[in-house]
């Protein structure tokens, strides 16, 4: 899977879980400020990503994740 394909899958999850418009899911978008997502929303997003990409993300790895780009990098590092 190339990067663009992976980002499309990532975006699908984010749109569904965070209930935002696809165009809001940009690499620089911040979860709290731009997407109105709190820490539990982020956990739910990661749960969906774990299922979609068949990966495992530990709670400690979420520390410091504040933007879409950071979350996407975390996912691709596990592929």
């Amino acid at each position: 899977m190339d990067n663009a394909e992976a980002f499309d899958k990532f975006k699908e999850c984010a749109v569904e879980v965070l209930q935002v418009a696809p165009e809001q899911v940009t690499p620089e978008a911040r979860f709290a400020d731009d997407l109105d997502a709190d820490s539990l929303d982020l956990v739910e997003l990661v749960m969906a990503l774990e299922e979609k990409f068949d990966i495992n993300v530990d709670e400690s790895e979420l520390e410091g994740v504040e933007t879409i780009a950071q979350a996407f990098d975390l996912v691709t590092s596990k592929l």
């Binding site: 539990l40 956990v43 739910e44 749960m47």
Partner: peptide, 12 residues
């Protein structure tokens, strides 16, 4: 409680 860990395991 490790809240996030409990949260997602509880749902699953």
């Amino acid at each position: 409680m490790k809240g996030k860990e409990v949260f997602r395991r509880a749902i699953r």
